[in-house]
Amino acid sequence: MTPTIMLDRLVEHLQSVTENFEMQTNIPGIKKAPQVVAGYLSEKKPAQKQEVPDYPYVIVRFLKDNDDNDGAVARVKIIVGTYSQDAQDGWRDPLNILTRIKQELLARPVFGESFRVEKPIETDMPEEQPFPEWWGSLTLNVIIPQMEEEGGFL
């Protein structure tokens, strides 16, 4: 199993967690569930040229991995971006999504049949926010199947 397979399975898992959200987008009058993508969002376009609104989104991003004698662990960041003209409470939207994702991962840490989320799960909401866009993130460790050594020494 590779980190890219793990990311794809986590995206699938998170789509089921976020599919019932109906959130404000960066296009007036349109609401939708967050798009969930691995890696990076596609090219940013002005709101009036977007077929599908950029916001809200959930990005599942690989940071690094480590293989040692105890197993293989990947470090993953889940970035949530939302859009709200509410300067007082706009921050609540990404925190709400992050909390729901975190609750799901704590309740059911195994996903894609082969991967397991391990504690700690770190939540980050930066103090500086690019109003009217809001964001936060989760950083987590995922246990991934480790390749076994073939053969041996002579």
Rank of each mutant, 00 (worst) to 15 (best):
P53L: 05
D65M: 05
P132K: 08
P94E: 03
G90N: 11
I78G: 06
E113I: 09
E104D: 09
K77S: 11
P132A: 10
I101R: 02
E51P: 14
M125G: 12
E128L: 14
K64P: 10
L98K: 00
A87Y: 12
R75C: 06
E118P: 07
N69W: 12
R92G: 02
L105I: 08
V80S: 04
K64A: 07
T82Y: 07
D124A: 14
D54F: 12
A107V: 01
L106F: 02
P53F: 14
Q129C: 14
R108F: 00
N69V: 13
I97Y: 02
K102V: 01
F111M: 01
E104M: 08
W91R: 03
Q129G: 04
G71V: 09
P130M: 10
D68R: 07
Y57H: 11
R116E: 13
P94I: 01
E128K: 11
G90M: 06
R100T: 00
Q50V: 11
Q85Y: 07
D89H: 09
A47V: 05
G81S: 12
R108M: 00
P120C: 12
E128M: 12
T82L: 09
T99Y: 07
R92K: 04
P94M: 02
M125T: 11
F111H: 00
V117N: 13
W91C: 01
D124H: 14
R92I: 09
D93N: 05
P130S: 10
G136C: 09
D124K: 14
I78E: 03
R75K: 13
P53E: 03
G136A: 08
L95K: 06
Q103H: 03
Q50H: 06
A107D: 08
R100M: 01
A107R: 06
I101F: 00
T82S: 07
D89Y: 05
V52E: 07
T82W: 04
K49I: 08
Y57F: 14
T99W: 03
A47Y: 03
D86A: 08
T82F: 10
R61D: 11
E51R: 14
R61W: 04
I78K: 08
G71E: 13
A47H: 04
A107Q: 09
I97M: 06
W135H: 11
L105V: 02
I121D: 10
E113D: 13
K102D: 02
A74D: 10
E113P: 09
V76W: 13
